[in-house]
Simulated scan of single mutants.
Amino acid sequence: MMPANFSFEFNLNHMLQYLIRLDDLCPTNDIDKWQRFFRLFDKYKIKPIIAVIPDNKDPKLKSRGKFNSNYWPMVRGLQSKGYIMGMHGYNHCYVNRNSGILKMNKRSEFAGLPSQIQEQKIKAAAAIFRREKVRPSLFIAPAHTFDRNTLMALEKYTDIKVISDGLLKSPYVRFGFNWIPVQLSEVEPKTENTWTFNYHPETCTDSAFDELEDFIVKYHKHFVSLDDLSFVNYGWVDFIKEKFCIYKRLIRGYISFLLVEAEKIPT
């Protein structure tokens, strides 16, 4: 007979759970594109993770819509509804091609920078949130790129203990932080484990939103919040699984690059 605690831990780690994250909230959003998400979530009592940019300087995002003078009151309103606030970097500007811990993208606001510069960014971001009375529960690195210095800066200047990132199938504890993996850019039915769907309202198509709406109508009871999650220690098996995911992603990217280059060769 299995020990009782084994069954309990197994169920917590393998039960089906969904979360959803919306990236790039800033004062120049096309707010109508966000409101449709908010209405959908409120209808089904889903509490999403919102990636809030403290001091947006990204030219692409600054050109999306008119400046919203009611931006921070709006953010506080989302917080009061129970939405999960996340610190989405500092200014969302990429300064190098470092891919950080997860090797997901070759652009970063943080990874590879000296610790003192990263500390300045995290400290400034935290100060803005304090000024605006917004309490971020987790950190969300732009482009999924950050390194150990980023984590040390968070530990030094914030109360954040959760990282919204990673490639595994369930939440885990690593480097002194709780990690909630972010695996999918659109909804996809699953049968077990914990899955985060990562949407960008500014660029989400109508068809992708309709698919999300249909999915939520069918599976809304499986959506959870931070308090529902169970975190397990990151071990050697997780290390191997993560490395496999990273190298599979790198190999796939390299093959795509070779195919593009091959098409340029004259026949």
Results as ranks from 00 to 15, higher is better:
L25N: 00
T28G: 02
I84V: 11
K121L: 01
V173K: 14
G112Q: 05
V75N: 03
L154W: 02
D159W: 04
K123P: 07
K161R: 15
N198I: 06
V134Y: 00
D30W: 09
R174L: 15
E192P: 01
R148L: 13
I122P: 00
T145K: 05
S207P: 07
D238E: 15
E132K: 13
F215T: 06
N233R: 14
L40F: 01
S137P: 01
Y157L: 11
E109N: 08
R76C: 06
D227Q: 12
R107A: 12
K60R: 14
V52F: 05
Y44N: 08
A126W: 04
Y219K: 11
K241H: 11
I160C: 04
T28V: 07
S170P: 02
G235I: 14
K169N: 14
H144M: 04
N5E: 13
E213C: 09
F223V: 03
K43G: 04
K43F: 11
E155A: 14
D210Q: 15
C26I: 08
P181N: 08
L151Q: 07
R97V: 09
N96L: 07
E192N: 15
D58Q: 12
F215G: 04
H92V: 03
D42Q: 12
D32W: 05
S63P: 08
R97S: 14
I50C: 07
I84A: 00
T158D: 01
S63C: 09
S170V: 07
N98R: 10
K60P: 00
F10P: 06
N149Y: 13
H144K: 10
L154T: 06
D214Y: 10
N13L: 13
V173E: 14
N193F: 13
G89L: 02
S170Q: 04
I49V: 08
I255M: 11
K66V: 12
G253Q: 07
Q35T: 06
G166H: 05
K57F: 10
Y18M: 01
R174K: 15
S115R: 10
L102S: 10
I246V: 10
S69M: 12
N29F: 03
D227W: 01
I84Y: 02
F110D: 02
N98Y: 06
N233A: 13
T191F: 10
M104H: 06
I101M: 04
L40S: 05
G65K: 01
K121E: 01
I240D: 12
E109F: 03
